[in-house]
Design a protein around this nucleic acid. Structure first.
Lengths: 142, 142
DNA sequence: CGTTTGTTTTGGATCATTCAAAATAACGGT
DNA sequence: ACCGTTATTTTGAATGATCCAAAACAAACG
């Protein structure tokens, strides 16, 4: 639960200064792999009560710019952040509670990466979001 | 350019009352197949200057609820609306100017609809967004 | 230990969207 | 054609998530 030296390494390797709030944000992201800025702020606040929400936004923006974190934006929901950046994976979002799970790219040779017609676009990335109902929501009466 | 009777039919068939603003929104959507509420409001305003932005939002929400329109929400951009609802298609978004093109589902039997691991979710839909640079943006110096 | 430069804080601004109440208009019946 | 019911539009304001900017502060390097 306490800030591991590993988080400092991560931050430093990304070319950023190591600060308490940044370490706290990294730690929060490690225990909550798909969290919004606000959720992360809650987590961070528990350990560093003086940290501002803006600092969390700052840290996240810096992380994303440095390639340390990635953001996803499920339709109609606040932006979520994750540390898993090295591979190309997708997401499965519960349309009821918003819970998010990682999904490795679909079977075989990433079929989703190649649209049938490109309309002349230089395609750079494919983003896939699966929507469904998670086991918990399916079990609960609504 | 003027409101066709067809738009009235569409609206009525959806179980909604036919009004000038709704017809104008449908017409605007027909000529701008991936437009935001605000862009549609601009269009509608040209013909019906008294129409409010709120009415456009209302009409769009009603259309979506009635299955007459669909909304998409490219990350970091305002929500877009389209009338093409009958098939399962995806989108190609220009990461520079935001231009959107439709993309039919990838070759063969909708491979994108089946994630490798479902984590127990009852998967209902798959949303695919391709990001790239459109021909115009590729040509312009920036 | 001091300087430099990056980071955090504070307070406010912005955009897209939504809410709510009152005014208005569409549609079906008469 | 007119009325009444009920949906729709308008108006004005509120909200939530995110961003901007200036001043206070702190990490890293020598």
């Amino acid at each position: 639960m306490t800030s591991t030296p590993a988080s400092a390494e991560l931050i430093r390797h990304a070319g950023l200064r190591v600060t308490d709030s940044r370490r706290a944000v990294v730690d929060a992201l490690e225990s909550h792999p798909h969290a919004s800025a606000d959720e992360l702020f809650q987590q961070v606040s528990a350990r560093l009560p003086q940290t501002s929400l803006q600092s969390v936004y700052n840290a996240l923006a810096d992380f994303v710019a440095a390639g340390l974190a990635r953001q996803i934006e499920p339709a109609g929901r606040p932006r979520l952040y994750e540390l898993r950046v090295s591979d190309n994976h997708h997401h499965l979002v519960c349309s009821q509670c918003g819970k998010v799970e990682d999904v490795d790219c679909v079977v075989g040779a990433a079929p989703c990466l190649h649209p049938s017609e490109t309309h002349g676009f230089a395609v750079e990335a494919a983003e896939v979001t699966f929507w469904g109902v998670c086991p918990d929501c399916a079990a609960s009466p609504l």
